[in-house]
Design a protein around this nucleic acid. Structure first.
Lengths: 366, 366
DNA sequence: ACTCCTAATTTGTACGTACATCTATTGTAC
DNA sequence: GTACAATAGATGTACGTACAAATTAGGAGT
């Protein structure tokens, strides 16, 4: 059972003596010759053991004088005491992100963890830089809201290399389908489904959707929309499935305007989020159509837009926001402390009915 | 002149080849036997040279396979070069703070700096913990929005010890009057003054104010209000100078309601910020008074409340928000890079006139 | 074409020797 | 007592050998 090399046994013995304060700080340890006699090994073996301890900062050698106990390693341990979690989101100030970040910050500060923040502005190059930056800074855990999660992400190898490291990683809102990462998110498919079902229950049979094409949330909400239509044996028209990506968002109002000029408009729209819903309603109003009078609108995220819009309060699928951030932070902290594998958490969506949807079932009777 | 030991010469030669990319990343370097022949030294000498390079992260050895070029040392160099700025604000998700933080983040990421975030929820104990935490983490600079800046702050000694360190510090929105710290802020006194002057110009002579008592911004806006009244030779009534602090904010609506029942109400109010203005207008509406019909309201900060309020768009003093964050970040970066003393930057306020103020000067004529 | 085993290669551990260089102490001369 | 030189003792450099352990490549067998 002499598996362990001699120099390692000696190294550990000396290391232990230092930590037990058998060799007090700054004191001289026995010379190589003495240690050689003590452990009955060659001088080379002693030197090998000591050399590693010098590299790790436990000892300092001085030619002609001796080898001394250092306290440098203690400093290193102090630095490690405080944990830092890196948070990378697409946006910081917009929309529901402040609430999510607040949830994370509250939970982390409760555990005396620090928060390092970075945003990608939904640009994969920025995402790469942020990931690199966080890895450089040796964060103890990472919370990432993926950038363009529905497109092939060029940073997948970064994520893969992260999974090999002991640094825990959890995704927010959505994950990359190519990777099997733990995620804290809303069940977006179900969200899209209940939003659409609400409209179907109100008697709408011709329902359009405006959704985002470059992230998974948009894809899943669309999926839920399609599923709800299929279950209700309703059809849809490709004309009224509008998809947009981050770069084309500024063009969206004019595209909506063009679409609204169609003669056979749907009686209702599902919108990717409140921002889009507001955009749609604004364009509607400008051509003289009202919501919910002419067109009902169901939206997602229940942001401040939902209740502060001048014309109408939005019926919207609730987004857990702060709670989502808190849950993600809880999981990361647990993973850092216990070293366990992280499990996912999927929120069940809930629809908040307000004023932007109208029951038209009786109108069908006429 | 064989001053330098052989193993050092060999080490430097290999190191140079790595840095010149003669040995490309991940590639195998010649075996110990080959190097031994190449440099005509013993294997021990080669091992000594290589061992140091392994310790420095240039090389990775693999028993049975070979010795390979690593890029770890590059990370280490980057890690040291990468700077982190700590940001401590009272709130994160509320109101105009997301915009400020966004401005900071954008500027910092432009310079490849990291951002470490913490919020105090306007609690001095949290502020102390955040400061301690940031100092532990050895941030390279600090941006702090002071907590309860108008009260005696128990953390002043922390700030003083910071000024002795080389870590640059800049205050946001307001500073502590006891300390002479650089600050990036709005000229709050002037802001209060132009808000009040606008009302005076519109013919108002009986003007109230609702302001915050525990921060300097509230104090200065009040100061500006008083100055404008004094300059116009107008008087004020103590009844209609309402002051509140963070802890009593939730009681404010009922206090406002009580005040509104006064028979001799002012014809206009200056509000500390949009949030308070919305609160005031809501209470007014509930007792049947309209804005600006019955009472004009001027507010501060020009937040999203200003334009998305259902009943009326607010006349509000502009707050630089993102620009403020950017300026603060710019100054910190410059101080970190150049080591120069930081100068303050005070924004000149600008009033944005919308719908919540009414000209009543003609009414005086009657 | 595939699997398994063997051999060669490569690094790891461990022993030995010799002399160099630096430091602190001791001894000697003044 | 002080200054200097010699010396002893510490680590540093450098050579050598031998075998162990891990990996890779190639060959034998199926």
């Amino acid at each position: 059972m002499l598996n362990e090399p001699k120099y390692l046994i000696i190294k550990k013995d000396i290391q232990m003596k230092i930590e037990k304060n058998d060799f007090t700080l700054g004191a001289k340890i026995p010379s190589e010759a003495e240690l050689r006699a003590q452990y009955d090994v060659s001088r080379h073996t002693i030197r090998q053991a000591i050399s590693e301890l010098v590299n790790q900062g436990y000892l300092i050698k001085q030619q002609g004088s001796g080898t001394f106990v250092s306290d440098y390693y203690k400093n290193q341990e102090n630095g490690n005491g405080k944990k830092t979690i890196g948070v990378i989101t697409t946006y910081l100030s917009d929309y529901i992100f402040p609430s999510i970040i607040r949830g994370i910050e509250e939970e982390l500060s409760k555990h005396d963890y620090s928060l390092m923040l970075s945003s990608t502005r939904n640009n994969v190059e920025n995402e790469r830089r942020s990931l690199e930056s966080m890895m450089d800074q040796n964060v103890d855990g990472l919370i990432v809201e993926p950038t363009k999660s529905n497109l092939m992400n060029p940073n997948l190898n970064y994520y893969l290399s992260l999974t090999e490291k002991p640094t825990p990683l959890i995704m927010l809102n959505a994950s990359y389908e190519e990777l099997d990462l733990p995620v804290v998110a809303l069940n977006d498919e179900k969200a899209g489904k209940i939003a659409t079902e609400h409209l179907i229950e109100l008697g709408h049979t011709n329902i359009g959707i405006i959704t985002k094409s470059d992230d998974l949330q948009g894809k899943n909400r669309l999926k839920g929309y399609l599923k709800a239509l299929y279950d209700a044996k309703l059809t849809f028209s490709n004309e009224f499935i509008m998809r947009y990506d981050t770069e084309a968002k500024s063009d969206l109002p004019s595209l909506i305007r063009i679409m609204l000029e169609n003669d056979h408009l749907p009686t209702a729209f599902v919108c990717y989020n409140d921002e889009i819903a507001v955009m749609l309603i604004k364009e509607m109003n400008e051509i003289g159509k009202t919501c919910p009078g002419d067109i009902s609108v169901v939206s997602h995220d229940d942001s401040f837009y939902s209740t502060t819009l001048p014309s109408v309060k939005l019926t919207s699928v609730e987004h857990p926001k702060e709670e989502l951030g808190r849950r993600a932070a809880q999981r990361i902290v647990k993973a850092v402390e216990k070293g366990e594998r992280i499990d996912s958490f999927i929120f069940d969506p809930r629809l908040i009915v307000r004023e932007s949807t109208k029951d038209i079932s009786y109108e069908d009777e006429y």
